[in-house]
């Protein structure tokens, strides 16, 4: 018999953690620099990432292709499940449904976010140095700020709950106690990620990221 489903599902599960899980953690830490160290720290982080060797291939094989596969195959998985939370309102069954809902939200959000940021850089509309200011333009719009908060919450949930499921699907957490402990750790990680991402968004709203402030800074550096 055919084995296609087994391997494609296994690959979907693996890519969600390696490399996409690592990427979202890296992305969270980079963004948090905007809150923690301000504009200079954020600029440094962006510069560091873009100076990594073979950055194009790192992005291609570490982010874009895994994201495309995980996203599209994930939509198929979400489509094939018949959610039944009405009759079975158990915690894990709700998490099962949430995993699919947040997956779809994350898919839409990431597509939009990629278009707004990475794509704009690719077509030369925004430079790496202007990214902070560009984010400030976006998240100071109240609607966009809400969209981004929903997006980061959905992505954090999808990753941390997916990590829990990954541990089961690869036979690492087998018994109910192991699964309970891993669920508590994953919940903790979800809270931590949500806080750091939201703080980053707040960081981008600060004055120093504003375009006018940037201009003043430039002038100051020329004079100074």
């Amino acid at each position: 018999m055919k084995r296609g489903y087994f391997y494609s599902r296994k690959l979907h599960s693996l890519l969600g953690i390696i490399p996409l899980g690592f990427f979202i953690l890296e992305h969270m830490i980079t963004n948090y620099a905007a809150y923690d160290g301000g504009k200079a720290a954020f600029q440094d982080s962006v510069k560091f990432l873009n100076e990594l060797p073979l950055i194009f291939f790192l992005e291609l094989f570490g982010i874009w292709l895994p994201l495309l596969y995980h996203g599209v195959y994930g939509l198929y998985i979400a489509y094939t499940s018949r959610n039944n939370v009405g009759n079975y309102n158990y915690g894990r069954n709700i998490a099962f449904m949430m995993q699919r809902i947040t997956g779809v939200i994350t898919f839409i959000f990431v597509t939009w976010h990629l278009y707004q940021t990475r794509f704009q850089i690719a077509i030369g509309e925004v430079s790496h140095e202007e990214l902070g200011t560009h984010m400030n333009d976006i998240v100071t719009q109240p609607l966009m700020f809400v969209v981004y908060i929903i997006g980061v919450l959905a992505a954090s949930y999808h990753f941390t709950n997916g990590l829990w499921a990954f541990l089961v699907s690869w036979g690492i957490t087998v018994g109910p106690r192991a699964q309970k402990v891993s669920s508590m750790i994953c919940t903790g990680l979800f809270v931590l990620m949500s806080v750091l991402f939201i703080l980053s968004l707040i960081g981008f709203r600060s004055q120093e990221f504003e375009a006018a402030a940037a201009a003043v800074q430039q002038v100051q550096s020329v004079i100074g």
Partner: peptide, 16 residues
């Protein structure tokens, strides 16, 4: 094989 163990989505309704 297709339709085997990969179909599990960890909703855990079964054990309940």
């Amino acid at each position: 094989d297709d339709g085997g163990i990969e179909g599990c989505g960890n909703s855990q309704n079964c054990v309940r």
